[in-house]
Nucleic acid binder design. Structure first.
Lengths: 234, 234
DNA sequence: ACAGGTACTTGACCTGCGTCAAGGCGAACT
DNA sequence: AGTTCGCCTTGACGCAGGTCAAGTACCTGT
């Protein structure tokens, strides 16, 4: 495996490659030998913050698996404004669209923090999918879960008002971190885009929630949820 | 295979089972022998109109493949209103959510026309996925395409105004049928739900389009598109 | 063929949220 | 440390589209 990672510098990877691969959810069903084989094809890279992984129009021949860090996936709508599609973290993958149907997509992906990312060539992945059906099955699980959460997004934007969506988003963050103090993974501007509101509306609703004593906003995108039950009922 | 298809009557299937299976996209990569094997496990059924295929809360152990007819998939949002997720036709499948992660989903599915539907037991399908990787790969393609179209729905609802979404929907129907006279596959109420507007708004926008001479509404949900270019620019 | 219910249309009203604008604050680079 | 740029907040305003209501047309089942 040659160190040809676009213009990124090489990985200062924590632990050996096989351990890293084994921790990736879509390879979790494989045995040690299979993991080794995949590890030999993987290209781990440290990617700096604010690096564009792929952009609209270009066909990128890599499936990216995030080992550490955060990546934002978004698109630019016809009317020119940015729509955040999802935010990916450790264990998530991206770039599957081009793998499955190699047409240009209008997605953009950019790192939000310095990230440790493995790139797998599409040809290799296609081979794994055919050879190790459990990999394909796990990808099906992931895509199915993504589809469901995107459907949630549709019903929320179409059916709930801005306040409900924002409250539900905060409660969701709290639920998955099991804490009542959450950190927004992205800027408020991006959260607003993700929730289908303007930054102004988000700002106003958060101020309103704070007035009612339901939340407390600290520095650095950190928000304490003081009354989760109230937020659930919004 | 015993004829135990809930309370539906047995299929008066056109052509033999193998031909039918071979025409299903997710099995298109298989050879004759494999098709035969699958055909022996398939339960084809004629389902009447307005029949509920599955409802929220219940875990339905079948993957359904639509051979003829139309099926509407929707959910009921927390605030109680119906949100149409997608409309499926010949060659499409549904029920894959429970196959992949057998948790109760909040989806409903109902036939809009009398439909010829094949049911495959989840255990059987799981076996095919592991044994014939091309089946899994085709399912990946389909899910990926669905994901993309659901993402389109998100950006459209969040970013475009009602008129644009409605015009784009009409143009989309025309594009896929290659004709400039289209038939809405579902009621206007359902189209409205799908597009994230109220039936009143849909009605008003269509009247507006007609005023401008861009469309002509006939009986029976049939609409002639008189000026597709104008609609594209809305 | 009839009756009933649902889908659709149109009108009047009103409000939530987007838009425009201006000011403060923090973060990143030199 | 200073400067700059983009993020965030708050205010004022207007309108797209949701809501409520009433009437008409359709479709469906008997």
């Amino acid at each position: 495996m040659e160190p040809r990672h676009e213009h990124h510098h090489d990985a200062g990877v924590t632990g050996d490659l096989e351990t890293l691969v084994a921790r990736v959810p879509i390879f979790s069903g494989l045995d040690h030998e299979q993991i080794s084989e995949i590890a030999s094809r993987v290209k781990p890279t440290m990617v700096p913050r604010n690096e564009q992984l792929y952009g609209a129009g270009e066909i990128n021949p890599y499936l990216r698996i995030i080992h550490t860090g955060t990546v934002k996936v978004y698109r630019i709508t016809e009317s020119g404004h940015e729509q955040v599609i999802r935010v990916l973290g450790a264990g998530d993958f991206l770039g599957e669209k081009a793998l499955i149907s190699p047409s240009a997509s209008d997605h953009f992906a950019v790192t939000l923090t310095e990230s440790e990312i493995c790139s797998l060539n599409h040809d290799d992945i296609r081979e794994y999918l055919l050879r190790y059906p459990s990999v394909a099955f796990t990808m099906l699980e992931t895509l199915s879960a993504r589809l469901e959460s995107t459907e949630d997004q549709v019903s929320a934007i179409a059916g709930e008002d801005a306040g409900s969506r924002i409250a539900a988003y905060l409660v969701g963050l709290a639920d998955e971190s099991h804490r009542n103090s959450v950190a927004l993974p992205i800027t408020k501007k991006d959260v607003a885009s993700f929730l289908g509101v303007t930054p102004e509306t988000l700002s106003r609703k958060l101020a309103l929630f704070e007035d009612k004593g339901w939340i407390h906003q600290q520095r650095h995108r950190r928000i304490d949820l003081l009354d989760i039950e109230a937020l659930r009922l919004v």
